[in-house]
């Protein structure tokens, strides 16, 4: 599904990723862990196609296709979804309106018929209930005045709505208390499927108690320095990043 080879990425002329390799197959959940400043968020933005993240070397293949030349909106339509660490506010645009615009833009791009307002409303309502996203939230301006938990739940709702093939969750656990974390993790687990790959980016092991990954990669200084099964998370928790990075060197 996703095959990253020798990826070098510079931001503002400064190299952040320095030869990253990563393969994720459909149906798998991989976790990327790493200390602050290791390049975790850069990886997520590069996969989503954010401007300002320059690929200086290497390749990203997605379902056999070169992802690099595609603009972000086309990647989205092809099933790449990034649940953001800091979802942005858009004043004056209701959440429902935003969801409808996004859903139909993706459908148009894929050559599918647009969904009418009632169709969208029904679909959204069904999925919103499971994530405890209230009707009232859908009527408010997108993310404006939302609590941290509400914002993250809305990200997961969008993931459920757009049904991506590759879902990247960037520090979805940050700023969540334990109840909110559990709710979000349940939402994510409900979306695990044999057709879908997930990349869970996190600083702490805590999230991985709830979303159990098939594989864990440790990212440090722009490279994957260690890999292993879910038990690696516990080792990290016990030893700390510094030791693991040192051991790998």
């Amino acid at each position: 599904m996703l095959d990253i080879k020798n990826l070098h990425v510079a931001v503002g002329g400064k190299e952040i990723l320095k030869g990253l390799n990563l393969r994720v197959e459909a149906g798998q959940v991989h976790a990327i862990m790493g200390p602050n400043g290791s390049g975790k968020s850069t990886l997520s933005y590069v996969l989503a196609g954010r401007a300002g993240y320059d690929i200086t070397e290497g390749s990203i293949s997605y379902n056999g296709e070169d992802l690099v030349p595609l603009p972000p909106e086309e990647r989205a339509a092809k099933g790449v979804f990034l649940a953001m660490q800091y979802p942005v506010e858009i004043p004056g645009v209701t959440t429902m309106m935003f969801l409808k615009s996004a859903l139909n833009a993706q459908r148009r791009s894929r050559g599918e018929a647009e969904m009418d307002a009632i169709g969208v409303l029904k679909t959204v309502r069904k999925k919103a209930a499971a994530l405890n996203v209230s009707e009232e939230m859908l009527k408010r301006a997108l993310n404006v005045g939302f609590s941290g938990g509400e914002k993250k739940r809305l990200e997961i709702l969008q993931m459920a709505l757009f049904e991506p093939k590759l879902a990247i969750l960037d520090e979805t656990d940050s700023g969540l208390d334990i109840d909110a974390l559990r709710l979000v993790a349940e939402g994510v687990n409900g979306l695990r499927s044999p057709e879908r790959a997930m990349l869970v980016i996190t600083h702490y092991q805590r999230l991985l108690d709830y979303i159990v990954p098939d594989r864990i990669h440790v990212l440090a200084k722009g490279r994957i320095v260690a890999e292993g099964g879910k038990e690696l998370a516990l080792e990290l928790e016990a030893k700390g990043y510094e030791q693991i990075v040192k051991d790998a060197a």
């Binding site: 954010r50 909106e73 339509a77 979804f81 953001m84 942005v88 996004a102 833009a105």
Partner: peptide, 16 residues
């Protein structure tokens, strides 16, 4: 820029 990127990431083109 982050508002625009958010929209793009959800599939909404630049002009829209």
């Amino acid at each position: 820029e982050d508002q625009l990127f958010y929209c793009l990431q959800r599939g909404i083109g630049q002009e829209e």
